[in-house]
Amino acid sequence: MKLTLEFGGGLELLFGSVKIHEVAVPPPEGETKVTVKHLLLWIRDNLLKERPEMFLKDKSVRPGVLVLINDCDWELCGTTEAVLEEKDTVVFISTLHGG
């Protein structure tokens, strides 16, 4: 499944300072759907090269990270259980505190 992943608020530093990644994420073996839960594991195993604790915690994103599916807060569509569709954009953004 083709997805556009975007990292911001400093999270891009964990991905070679590249903010936008066009990726193809296969569904888990024997399944057809790609959930956000599966996407998080795929990112950990395929994109994230170091310090997974900066991105993930307890099978979800770490506190302080907002997840947006097609510009919509993932809380509005099931968080880790949300089912992704072809060409969806998923944004991971770390909250900023500076001023």
Binding site: G10, E53, M54, K57, R62, P63, G64, V65, L66, S94, T95, L96, H97, G98, G99
Partner: peptide, 25 residues
């Protein structure tokens, strides 16, 4: 509501460490 748990201390960035282009704020 958005951030019920604060980010872990090791994950934070600050202007005094990471800088900020003045016109952004």
């Amino acid at each position: 509501c958005l951030f019920p748990v604060p980010p872990p201390p090791g994950t934070r960035q600050r202007c005094s460490d990471n800088g900020v282009l003045g016109v952004v704020p």
